[in-house]
């Protein structure tokens, strides 16, 4: 419901430019927006819980000094933030959260666990919530006379993005190829780059299906080489 199979958006800001975006994000309707909003809230909550758990276990000052702080700390949190005293602000914020009812509950819940388990779990949750991408999007921007810019998913779990620009002079051809991948044979788009041994695969992370691959192929060639009559210079067979 939150994601779909990869599908294609084509944007043509000018006649000589085209952007092909393949994404797993479905069209944004009101219910979907609400759902996404709750999802983001949940992420924020989870992240805070993880940080709080870490604080409660490893950074919380002793009970005594804690009392001391409590007395000392009468000025409201907002004023600390406005004063630009960020470390002090964060400490106070965490203390307040820790003393609050959910905070105590969290501390009670994590109390029976050993130190390493708490550390691992909290760090893991924090990392996952920060880096989590629900939708995966890859795009190809074609500029006639300039070249192709690809924006692809990268990183170990596909959490980063990577862009690459290939100038027109280096593009020898754009074509569709078939290859074995895992237990199946897939169609994919490749750019043959002058002077490079390996071809550049477009949409390597999502590997959309044949219908999309063909649409993009047509579009890219139309935008990049329009006027040469859709040349037969590529044999497309690989």
């Amino acid at each position: 419901m939150l994601t779909t199979a990869p599908h294609l958006y084509i944007r043509r800001p000018s006649p000589t430019t085209a952007e092909f975006t393949v994404t797993t994000c479905p069209p944004l309707t009101v219910p979907l927006r609400l759902l996404l909003l709750t999802l983001h809230l949940a992420r924020i909550l989870l992240f805070s819980a993880a940080v709080l758990a870490l604080y409660a276990r490893f950074l919380e000052p002793s009970q005594h000094s804690h009392q001391h702080h409590h007395h000392h700390n009468n000025n409201p949190i907002i004023s600390l933030f406005l004063a630009g005293n960020i470390p002090q602000f964060l400490t106070t914020l965490l203390q307040t959260a820790h003393r609050s009812q959910p905070g105590t509950l969290l501390a009670q819940l994590t109390a029976p666990l050993p130190d390493w388990a708490v550390a691992l779990a909290s760090l893991g949750v924090a990392y996952a919530t920060v880096c989590f991408r629900l939708h995966r999007t890859e795009s190809v921007l074609v500029l006639r006379g300039l070249g192709i810019q690809t924006c692809t998913i990268s990183g170990k779990w596909g959490w980063g993005t990577q862009t690459r620009f290939i100038p027109t002079e280096q593009i020898r051809d754009v074509l569709i190829n078939e290859a074995f991948r895992g237990f199946e044979v897939r169609y994919y788009l490749i750019v043959v780059v002058e002077g490079e041994e390996d071809v550049v695969v477009l949409f390597p992370g999502l590997l959309p299906r044949r219908r999309i691959v063909e649409a993009v192929w047509r579009g890219v060639r139309g935008c990049l080489f329009e006027g040469d009559g859709g040349g037969g210079e590529g044999d497309g067979k690989g």
Binding site: E214, G232, G236
Partner: peptide
């Protein structure tokens, strides 16, 4: 036919 063109590397505008 169109699919074939794509394999063949020909492009019909």
């Amino acid at each position: 036919r169109r699919a074939m063109d794509s394999l063949d590397g020909h492009w019909d505008p």
